[in-house]
Design a protein around this nucleic acid. Structure first.
Length: 317
DNA sequence: GCGTCCAGGTCTACC
DNA sequence: GGTAGACCTGGACGC
């Protein structure tokens, strides 16, 4: 599944070594639709270039190593240019590939989703275009913390909070770029520092408590990805994180591969009203009733429909 | 440049 | 179970 170029693919410039990797992708995968599937590509340690259609990401390989990866689409593959301060071992390469495969959701089977989409004329564009995979972070800890930073604020403030958290607590790569911080590094901080230096406001105690629970192993968000719990039960577990309400928990579930919740916020409510009711606001229960027919894929159909014009503008289909 | 107002989701207290 | 108010910040706006 994972392919790698031969040894000559490593070259050195200054103190940074460059390595090339290639990751094989499923036939129904579209790189740019996945990279640009929602706002995560805009939050560090992700970044993107819409002209070149590349996605970049600083990854943590172990406690002491950060590398920068630039991803671009290749034929039935994703090409990865890895910048590192040292030569990568085979284990490092495997780790990079595993993390990126998880971010791009390459191990997940969307066949049933696409079959369902083909049943509805409104959604036939989805399997044709390879949309459906939502970009996620290497860890659930990161996804959850970022989701907390999207609550009750504008996207501009979310960017500020996440950027400052990453710069204050993340491992540096090359002096300019930073990896996402570990739970331990944030747990060692204080509420006042998070408020003052990261502009997290009233979320500071929630962020600190979440990081402390994870650091002390009282909570294991990574286990949510493989949890045997029914989605409703997992939703309740996620909601035990202070500051994570229905909107945030529903969207975290989507990044875990469970699409039973719509994850309603003001933007999607307004978007739904524009698309279906000429801008007239409707109750949440009305929206939920509309999408109930799509079963446990409803959250994904809903999100793709609400954001289809992103794709129309950029992909012209 | 300064002050005021607003948007945004969750928590808590109260009914 | 439902509701109101507080939380906090950056940005928009008016002066």
């Amino acid at each position: 599944m994972i392919r790698r170029r031969p040894p000559h693919s490593t070259r050195q410039t200054g103190q940074t070594l460059h390595h090339r990797l290639s990751i094989a992708t499923p036939v129904d995968f579209d790189f740019w639709r996945t990279a640009y599937s929602h706002g995560w590509c805009d939050l560090p340690p992700f970044s993107f270039d819409s002209n070149l259609r590349t996605l970049s990401r600083v990854l943590t390989l172990n406690e002491h190593t950060a590398v920068n990866c630039r991803l671009a689409a290749g034929p039935r593959s994703v090409h990865v240019l890895v910048s590192a301060s040292a030569k990568l071992s085979a284990a490092d390469r495997r780790q990079i590939q595993e993390q990126l495969r998880s971010c791009l959701r390459l191990g997940e089977d969307f066949g049933a989703f696409y079959d369902k989409a083909r049943e509805h004329p409104l959604y036939r564009w989805i399997p044709r275009s390879g949309a459906g995979r939502l970009l996620r972070s290497p860890t659930v800890f990161e996804d959850t913390l970022k989701m907390l930073c999207t609550t009750n604020c504008t996207w501009a403030l979310t960017r500020i909070m996440v950027t400052r958290l990453v710069r204050r607590f993340g491992r540096s790569f090359g002096g300019e770029l930073y990896a996402f911080p570990s739970a331990g590094s944030i747990a060692d901080s204080t509420e006042s520092f998070l408020r003052r230096e990261c502009s997290t406001g009233y979320r500071a105690p929630y962020i600190l408590e979440f990081a402390c629970r994870v650091d002390r192993a009282e909570l294991d968000p990574e286990s949510w990805r493989t949890s045997p719990l029914p989605t409703e039960e997992l939703f309740k577990v996620i909601r035990t994180v202070k500051g994570i309400g229905p909107y945030a928990a529903g969207n975290i579930l989507k990044l875990l591969g469970r699409y039973d919740y719509l994850g309603l916020d003001s933007w999607v409510r307004s978007r739904y009203s524009e698309l279906h009711h000429s801008g007239r606001r409707v109750k949440d229960s009305t929206i939920e009733r509309t999408y109930a027919r799509y079963g446990h894929w409803r959250g994904l159909f809903f999100w793709l429909e609400m954001t289809r014009d992103w794709h129309d503008d950029k992909f012209n289909f």
